[in-house]
């Protein structure tokens, strides 16, 4: 397990607890009371730290190296019913964008989502979760296929942005994202979007238009990453904490601004500390939202989705 700076008090207590238990096992000293106390303190400390997280700390948590990624969720939720599908039918199979069919209970879903790697090699293979135009086109192909057969769509978002490369521009990164956004507004099946990590700008929204948009507690979603915002507006990378505050990119802020529908609470200590529990929470959220959405006709579904997006924006007059 890796620890972020502000998580170090937790690590310290966890180490103490480990030591305490070892002593208990190896000697006759009764340490149960001491262990209990450390455990209690650990729970309190964890609660305290996670209750008062700053925006920047949440950004750090969203990028935590142990945080579960898209395929972790899908494999945990669908088990061996998951059938991954590949390719955009045009130029490539984008490894930064994955998709496929899977079951939750008796219900089939089409999953799409950005995929990050868990070590140097796989991070490169997944292009750090930054999709190229072919990734967005693959996602759209799968969503259209789901629509054809009346299968609901689940989008899991975790991206530092769409890939800013020469070839990506040549192949029309902007067009690919734009096309997805438009088609998703009128897709005739339910779309449930869950931000599970980073939600950076158009790269996230390219698979992010939905009937329900949920954000896990320790994720961020905005028009730009705090670092890039800092470098553009403050002309220095040093102001990322301030930028994170200013952008109002946390789930709480996004809910207040009515840009997302729900905040999904993570287990104490964050999604990475109790992965299985997190998978279970997300699975149940997908099920309960689908149960509401399946009652709507395709026409009602598209109508209310369009109304929702039409209502976004703040202005005078």
């Amino acid at each position: 397990m890796e620890y972020l700076d502000f998580e170090l008090p937790i690590k310290e207590l966890e180490d103490q607890l480990d030591k305490c238990m070892v002593i208990g096992e190896e000697s006759d000293v009764d340490v149960s009371e001491t262990c209990k106390q450390i455990e209690k303190k650990l729970t309190e400390t964890r609660k305290e730290i996670y209750k008062n997280l700053t925006a920047w700390q949440r950004v750090q948590l969203s990028r935590h190296p142990n945080r579960p990624y898209t395929l972790d969720y899908i494999n945990a939720i669908c088990g061996d019913t998951f059938l991954e599908l590949h390719g955009d039918r045009n130029v490539r199979d984008d490894k930064a964008m994955i998709g496929g069919l899977g079951k939750i209970g008796d219900q089939s879903y089409m999953f799409v989502g950005q995929q990050k790697g868990y070590n140097t090699k796989t991070r490169q293979y997944r292009n750090f979760g930054m999709a190229n135009p072919e990734g967005y086109r693959k996602a759209l192909r799968l969503m259209k296929s789901a629509e054809k057969f009346g299968v609901p769509v689940v989008c899991l978002i975790d991206t530092p942005g769409a890939y800013p490369g020469i070839e990506a521009e040549e192949r029309g990164q902007g067009e690919a994202i734009a096309r997805n956004i438009l088609e998703m507004t009128r897709l005739k099946v339910p779309i449930i979007v869950v931000i599970i990590g980073e939600g950076a700008s158009g790269g996230a929204l390219g698979i992010g238009v939905g009937d329900r948009v949920l954000m896990l507690e320790n994720t961020w979603y905005s028009v730009i990453s705090p670092e890039s915002c800092s470098s553009i507006l403050w002309r220095s990378w040093e102001y990322k904490e301030q930028a994170a505050e200013a952008l109002k990119l946390t789930a709480t802020d996004m809910k207040k601004l009515k840009l997302i529908d729900e905040i999904v609470r993570e287990p104490a200590g964050g999604a990475h500390s109790q992965r299985e529990k997190t998978f279970e929470i997300v699975k149940n959220k997908i099920i309960s939202h689908f149960q509401e959405l399946e009652k709507l006709s395709p026409k009602q579904l598209v109508h209310s989705r369009m109304e929702k997006y039409a209502a976004m924006g703040v202005f005078n007059g």
Partner: peptide, 29 residues
């Protein structure tokens, strides 16, 4: 051809029957 984006997956012939029917069940719910 899969790398270029034109195939959804490559399947060993021993798994063919299972995989095709899995797809049919999934897409037809």
């Amino acid at each position: 051809v899969k790398e270029q984006g034109f195939l959804d997956f490559i399947v060993h012939r021993g798994e063919l029957k299972k995989k095709i029917n899995l797809y049919i069940d999934l897409i037809q719910n």
